[in-house]
């Protein structure tokens, strides 16, 4: 299936894009993360949460045909 992945904050600097469409043939969030980490190894060191359809999900959540967001915490004030 085609997934739209959005990258926020410093994650977009690693991926060099704020949004991309990828083809995903597996099942869960953890499998998606494995794929993204292989593509962008620098993501490994970053803390972030994953949201699907605007809700935070865990690693064992099933990926539906939808929009995925990778959301890092910001420190700045």
């Amino acid at each position: 299936m085609k997934l739209t992945i959005k990258y926020f904050g410093m994650l977009a600097e690693i991926t060099e894009c704020t949004e991309e469409t990828i083809t995903f043939s597996e099942d869960t969030v953890s499998e998606l993360l494995k794929m993204l980490l292989a593509k962008y190894p620098a993501l490994e060191k970053k803390e972030f949460q994953v949201a699907q359809n605007q809700t935070l999900v865990s690693e064992d959540t099933q990926i539906l045909n939808s929009e995925i967001v990778l959301l890092p915490p910001f420190a700045g004030g």
């Binding site: 060191k45 970053k46 803390e47 949460q49 935070l56 915490p73 910001f74 420190a75």
Partner: peptide
């Protein structure tokens, strides 16, 4: 929202970036 705090030096603040 963020149960796992970022590791040290992972995320810089405004004065650095």
């Amino acid at each position: 929202l963020f149960p796992n705090p970022p590791s040290e030096n992972d995320i810089p603040n405004c004065s650095e970036v």
